[in-house]
Computed example of a mutant assay.
Amino acid sequence: MHITADDRLLFIGDSITDAGRDRTDSASLGNGYVREIAQTLRHLTNVAGGACPAPAVINKGVNGHRVYDLESRWTTDVIAQRPTVVTVKIGINDTWRLYDRGLPSPVAEFESCLDRILTHTRQHSSAARLVVITPFLLPVTSEQEGWYEDLVPRTEAVLRAARANGAQLVRTDLLLPRAAEESGAVALAPDGVHPSPRGHKLIADAWLTAVNGEELGEEL
Rank of each mutant, 00 (worst) to 15 (best):
G64R: 07
G64T: 06
G64A: 11
G64Q: 11
G64D: 08
H65N: 14
H65W: 14
R66A: 13
V67I: 03
V67W: 01
V67R: 00
Y68Q: 13
D69C: 02
D69L: 00
D69R: 01
L70M: 06
L70Q: 02
L70I: 06
E71G: 02
E71S: 03
E71L: 07
S72C: 08
S72I: 03
S72G: 04
S72Q: 09
S72E: 10
R73M: 10
R73T: 04
W74H: 01
W74C: 04
W74S: 00
T75K: 07
T75M: 11
T75W: 10
T76I: 08
T76V: 08
T76E: 15
T76G: 09
T76A: 15
D77R: 01
D77T: 00
I79Y: 05
A80G: 10
A80N: 08
A80I: 09
A80E: 12
Q81N: 11
R82P: 05
R82T: 14
P83A: 12
T84D: 12
V85T: 05
V85P: 00
V86H: 01
V86E: 06
V86C: 04
T87A: 14
T87M: 12
T87G: 13
T87R: 04
V88F: 06
V88N: 06
V88C: 09
K89F: 15
K89E: 14
K89R: 11
I90F: 03
I90M: 08
I90W: 02
I90D: 07
G91C: 08
I92A: 12
N93A: 11
N93M: 06
D94F: 05
W96F: 14
W96C: 13
R97S: 10
R97P: 03
L98F: 04
L98S: 08
L98C: 08
D100T: 10
D100M: 03
D100G: 06
R101Q: 15
G102W: 08
G102D: 14
L103Q: 13
L103E: 14
L103Y: 09
P104L: 12
P104F: 11
P104N: 10
S105P: 04
S105I: 04
E109L: 14
F110Y: 14
F110A: 11
E111S: 04
E111F: 00
S112C: 13
S112W: 09
C113P: 01
C113K: 02
C113V: 04
C113T: 08
D115I: 02
D115V: 00
D115M: 01
I117G: 02
I117R: 00
L118T: 01
L118C: 03
L118E: 00
T119P: 00
T119D: 05
T119W: 03
H120P: 02
H120M: 15
T121P: 03
T121M: 07
R122N: 04
R122K: 12
Q123H: 13
H124D: 13
H124T: 09
H124Y: 14
H124E: 13
S126D: 09
S126G: 06
A127M: 13
A128W: 06
A128R: 04
A128Q: 08
R129L: 12
R129T: 10
R129Q: 15
R129C: 09
L130G: 00
V132E: 00
T134E: 12
P135S: 13
P135E: 14
F136Y: 10
L137K: 01
L138Y: 03
L138E: 05
P139K: 01
P139N: 07
V140E: 03
S142D: 15
E143C: 07
E143M: 07
Q144A: 08
